[in-house]
Write a protein that binds this DNA or RNA. Structure first.
Lengths: 216, 216, 216, 216
DNA sequence: TATGAATGAGTATTCATTCAT
DNA sequence: CATGAATGAATACTCATTCAT
């Protein structure tokens, strides 16, 4: 009676486990050896799974990469929370929270970040496209937010929102790069970076009245 | 007949020509198809050179990539001119000039930029290392400059120079990414971007007195 | 509940059904895609049976083919009825009947014919052997019949029975080939072919008195 | 001066040699082990050539098969010579010559015949198509010839040329099958078979006046 | 019996590199 | 210097078969 149910449950549990194991193994191997240097053997060896089994869960090596890519992009999207100007929480605090979220997502997915930062563009036309689309959307989103801010009088009207959004994205990507390359930063470091990155970007979109730097 | 000199000259002329042709061909092909999708056949076909000849000029496909990488890094290094605080030209004007230089170098070497931005990290341990080193040096350089600025009282002392330099590099890299992906921007666009990027970054390292953005 | 008998019966009924379904599915798939292009998945998918179940009924893919092969060979053997010279029915009428039988068997088993004609020789050493043996027996049988006919004075003694039997088999095999390749011929067409094929073969073993064809 | 010429000559000689060696090796291996059981390793091992070299001369294993197939078909086509009714040589002698030619071509290309007879239909859609087309053309050719013969009064008008041409082709194909399966027949045997096969087929298209066989 | 997830041996093809000419 | 035919190591993917449930 409980036979089939149990079997089904166990089976699907195994299924989930196997796929997770493969994703985990791939994340590790891709991150340490790079996509092109990684052989299917490496992944299945690391996951403790037979060769054929791999293709039970993934159509191809590329498809596997794509799933990993999506995993990170989903995390990042989730971390990006828009600002609610009607909220009683100050915009800066909201932004502070979002920045911390994003940096945390990057740090928490160090392997994925490494993979994405280093190889998303050179695995495949598809992965390249997906990354480009992702970043374009982010830039567009930031740009729209800035324009909105200008309308609301929160941001100086003489800011080139196009360039500013590009710069802001750049600062975040450089952080991703840094995480991908250095050892995982401590929570304290991340907090400090979040704070300073936010300040830097806020400064970047602040009104350009007068020059701060002068050599006389 | 007229002696070895002439032959040598002609030969070395040809030599230079062939190598240049191969580099040019590789830059094009790598930029359009990507390093891993590019076959030696593609390069020699495009350069009009025989297969064996390729290996007279380059040790390997990787070595070829490395040379291209260096070409761009040299250009970029050349474009980066430090600020002379004793000069009669204002710091901001000097910076403005440098930024314009850098952006121009990027735009002028669009193919190389594309290649480097997309693949430097996933060709090889060596290329990866070289890129990392290059960017690390830049960050260090910026960081030192900022510290210097703080010492001179040009930059607010509460700036985290570490994070700020990371952000600044990020803004430049995002521009490289943009050039790699979009059509070549016009001179006017580049000028506008240079101006705004500089302002953004200057804003980022400006004293954080009071918040600019507030929703009350 | 009502005892083991019923269950057994039902089970064996299912057994017969499943096996028949698999044979049927295989006949179709092999005929349309060819043995080597057909995957076990295709067969079980078409038969609506689980993968493991397949191996309850057939030892291997080859064994399945062998069973299909046998099905056709049995049909063909059944269709071949020897001539009874003591019968009151004329030899030609008996032959006519047999030819019609054979052609009908071929047409009625179009899928099997297609498979056997096209692939029996290249599936396996075993299938190849079995086909060769089958055809050799047929040739031997025809040959013996012809020798018998010669002894009885029904067939001219100057006929090379070896070659003639080869030719006769050839005409039948060409018909099999034709059925395998074209659409199923109508009953009328088959009858016409049977009549003409018999006449052709009878003509082939007729006494070679004089040449029929002459260009003077 | 004679440098490049010689090299070219030698090179092309080697080229021709290598390709011929591969074709020869493939003919042997395919004939003895069958197309599907033959590995590229078998062919290159037998030809004494490196793996990559194989693909210098053939696009794929299938393409190799196709070339072998064409080799036989060309030989066979060349062996088929039409009858010239205005010639001073009797039609029967002309036919006799052609039949001998065809059988000789089959025997001389025993390996190819074996391959084609056994596998042409199950290698590929393309090979299958090519074989079908070849045989269809032959049948059509025979059929047209028979119709011509009927017009000229050389062949009885009550012959179904469609069926007769099918039968005739069948006799030849059965000979091919026989050569593919048995040891190479001696010249004498082939001559005998040619003579008898011709007589058989001539008998098949002779006027059906009266029955030869009768059991009373 | 029935199932279908797991297995892993098996192979055609690619392509960077070499080297005889 | 120049050539391009030859090389062969390297690898993703398939699919018949098994076996735990």
């Amino acid at each position: 009676m409980t036979g089939p149910d149990r079997r089904t449950i166990r089976a699907s549990a195994t299924r989930a486990t196997k796929k997770a194991a493969l994703l985990q193994a791939a994340a590790q191997t891709f991150a340490s050896k790079g996509y092109h240097q990684t052989r299917i053997s490496d992944v299945i060896g690391c996951a403790g799974v037979a060769r054929g089994t791999f293709y039970l869960y993934f159509e191809s090596k590329t498809a596997l990469f794509l799933e990993l890519l999506d995993l990170l992009l989903i995390e990042l999207r989730a971390a990006i929370v828009g600002v609610d100007v009607t909220s009683h929480i100050s915009v800066e605090d909201q932004l502070s929270h979002t920045v911390r979220n994003i940096l945390a997502a990057v740090v928490d997915n160090r392997n994925l970040t490494t993979i994405v930062v280093r190889e998303a563009a050179c695995v495949d036309a598809e992965t390249d496209l997906r990354m480009a689309r992702f970043y374009r959307r982010i830039v567009d989103y930031i740009c729209c937010s800035l324009l909105e801010g200008q309308k609301l009088g929160l941001i100086a009207p003489d800011i080139d929102t196009d360039v500013a959004s590009m710069c802001i994205l750049g600062t975040f990507r450089q952080f991703m790069e840094r995480v991908a390359r250095s050892k995982t930063p401590s929570q304290m470091e991340v907090d400090q970076i979040a704070r300073e990155m936010l300040q830097f970007n806020l400064g970047g979109i602040r009104a350009r009245s007068g020059t701060l730097l002068t050599n006389r």
